[in-house]
């Protein structure tokens, strides 16, 4: 199988690629992991990963600057139903819009806004940075085998405010619930970094590679 990691100038791609390679080895799946900015490669891929670190607007601009990429993602993921994983800002880009620095339209795949975190306790630091414990709201094949309370690594100042509760798969507590995973149909997104979350993250990536929604 071919897994495309979309490269639009946001960082973190090497560790995402290496973690997926490790996951493929552990799952005994013959997978080629392609880090690519080429829409044709994304079209050929079986699974698609959209990573992302940085600012929402900058990431959206980077993605839009790749010729044909957003159209291809819509065709392959939304119309074609290919398994899709968004990570961190890659997950946030699935939203209707982002409100970081400026209001910017997202891919609008899962209805919601990406807004500054507002923990109830003002002493809590922003960014929400470090290891927090996952609480699940719905079962999902990509989250299978990850125990409630498992730790995942977060680093973000903005969160995905999901409009429809049925799209909310997992949260963490940080002065109130913070979206940790969202999904519908063939789409899943994680605010945390599976590629930085040691065994929990590798488990999720193995599940994603095996996922046939």
């Amino acid at each position: 199988m071919l897994v495309a990691i979309v490269d639009y100038g946001s960082g973190n791609l090497r560790s995402a690629a290496k973690a997926l390679e490790r996951a493929a080895r552990e799952a005994e799946i013959a997978a080629e992991i392609a880090v690519t900015g080429d829409a044709t490669t994304v079209r050929l891929a079986d699974h698609i990963v959209l990573p992302g670190v940085g600012a929402f607007a900058d990431c959206k601009r980077g993605l839009a600057a790749l010729p044909g990429m957003i159209a291809t993602l819509n065709e392959e993921v939304i119309e074609g139903g290919k398994p899709f994983l968004g990570i961190c800002v890659g997950m946030q880009l699935m939203a209707t819009r982002g409100l970081e620095f400026e209001t910017v339209a997202g891919l609008d795949w899962i209805v919601g806004d990406v807004a500054m975190l507002a923990p109830s306790d003002p002493k809590l630091k922003i960014p929400h940075m470090g290891w927090n414990q996952l609480q699940f709201h719905a079962g999902h094949p990509v989250l299978a085998g990850i125990a409630p309370g498992a730790h995942a690594y977060f680093v973000h100042s903005y969160g995905f405010n999901c409009a429809a509760p049925r799209h909310l798969l997992a949260t963490v507590d940080y002065g109130g619930p913070v979206t940790a995973a969202i999904g519908r149909d063939n789409l899943i997104g994680t605010q945390f970094h599976p590629e930085k979350s040691q065994d929990t993250g590798l488990r999720l990536l193995v599940n994603f590679l095996r996922w046939q929604p």
Binding site: G11, V53, G54, A55, D58, V89, F101, M129, V155, S157
Partner: peptide, 9 residues
């Protein structure tokens, strides 16, 4: 740097 890459990094 924060505007380009995000405050979190």
């Amino acid at each position: 740097a924060a505007e380009k890459f995000g405050s979190q990094c």
